[in-house]
Measured scan of single mutants.
Amino acid sequence: MISNAKIARINELAAKAKAGVITEEEKAEQQKLRQEYLK
């Protein structure tokens, strides 16, 4: 099960992506976390 901290990070990265200020490194982290969440 995914931790609350990881869910919070997913939401934080989603907000950054929506604002258009996300880095390529953060995009990769976001994809990794989303895949983990979906498992």
Score class of each variant (00 low, 15 high):
residue 12 E to Q: 11
residue 20 G to C: 06
residue 23 T to C: 12
residue 38 L to K: 08
residue 18 K to V: 04
residue 2 I to A: 09
residue 36 E to I: 05
residue 31 Q to H: 13
residue 14 A to L: 06
residue 14 A to M: 10
residue 12 E to F: 06
residue 29 E to H: 01
residue 20 G to R: 03
residue 26 E to T: 01
residue 38 L to W: 09
residue 38 L to Y: 14
residue 30 Q to Y: 14
residue 34 R to D: 07
residue 24 E to M: 07
residue 8 A to R: 13
residue 17 A to F: 07
residue 24 E to G: 06
residue 39 K to F: 14
residue 24 E to W: 08
residue 15 A to Q: 13
residue 32 K to T: 12
residue 29 E to R: 01
residue 17 A to I: 08
residue 37 Y to S: 06
residue 12 E to I: 06
residue 5 A to E: 13
residue 29 E to D: 02
residue 22 I to E: 01
residue 12 E to G: 02
residue 14 A to K: 11
residue 16 K to M: 04
residue 31 Q to G: 06
residue 16 K to T: 01
residue 12 E to C: 04
residue 12 E to Y: 09
residue 36 E to N: 04
residue 2 I to N: 08
residue 24 E to H: 09
residue 1 M to K: 14
residue 33 L to Q: 02
residue 1 M to V: 11
residue 1 M to R: 05
residue 28 A to H: 11
residue 38 L to M: 11
residue 31 Q to F: 09
residue 4 N to S: 14
residue 6 K to P: 05
residue 30 Q to R: 11
residue 22 I to P: 01
residue 8 A to S: 07
residue 38 L to T: 08
residue 8 A to H: 11
residue 17 A to G: 04
residue 7 I to K: 13
residue 22 I to F: 00
residue 16 K to W: 02
residue 32 K to I: 13
residue 33 L to H: 04
residue 4 N to M: 15
residue 17 A to E: 10
residue 17 A to M: 12
residue 2 I to P: 10
residue 13 L to W: 00
residue 9 R to M: 03
residue 32 K to V: 14
residue 36 E to Q: 06
residue 18 K to S: 10
residue 38 L to E: 15
residue 9 R to W: 02
residue 1 M to H: 11
residue 30 Q to S: 07
residue 16 K to H: 02
residue 34 R to N: 12
residue 31 Q to E: 15
residue 2 I to M: 14
residue 28 A to F: 07
residue 26 E to K: 01
residue 22 I to R: 02
residue 7 I to C: 11
residue 36 E to T: 04
residue 35 Q to F: 10
residue 19 A to M: 06
residue 30 Q to L: 15
residue 17 A to Q: 10
residue 10 I to W: 15
residue 33 L to G: 01
residue 35 Q to I: 07
residue 20 G to N: 04
residue 19 A to E: 05
residue 1 M to S: 10
residue 30 Q to I: 14
residue 31 Q to D: 13
residue 34 R to H: 15
residue 27 K to V: 10
residue 21 V to C: 09
residue 26 E to L: 01
residue 15 A to S: 06
residue 13 L to D: 00
residue 29 E to Q: 03
residue 37 Y to P: 04
residue 25 E to T: 12
residue 6 K to F: 12
residue 1 M to D: 10
residue 18 K to T: 06
residue 11 N to L: 15
residue 14 A to Y: 05
residue 31 Q to P: 00
residue 35 Q to H: 11
residue 34 R to L: 15
residue 9 R to F: 03
residue 15 A to L: 11
residue 31 Q to N: 09
residue 12 E to T: 04
residue 1 M to E: 08
residue 11 N to W: 14
residue 32 K to L: 14
residue 1 M to F: 12
residue 16 K to Y: 04
residue 9 R to E: 02
residue 15 A to P: 00
residue 22 I to D: 02
residue 30 Q to N: 04
residue 5 A to H: 09
residue 10 I to Y: 15
residue 6 K to T: 13
residue 2 I to R: 04
residue 20 G to T: 01
residue 26 E to N: 00
residue 23 T to E: 02
residue 18 K to G: 05
residue 21 V to M: 05
residue 3 S to W: 09
residue 27 K to L: 09
residue 15 A to N: 08
residue 11 N to S: 08
residue 12 E to W: 05
residue 36 E to K: 05
residue 29 E to N: 01
residue 2 I to H: 08
residue 12 E to R: 04
residue 10 I to H: 04
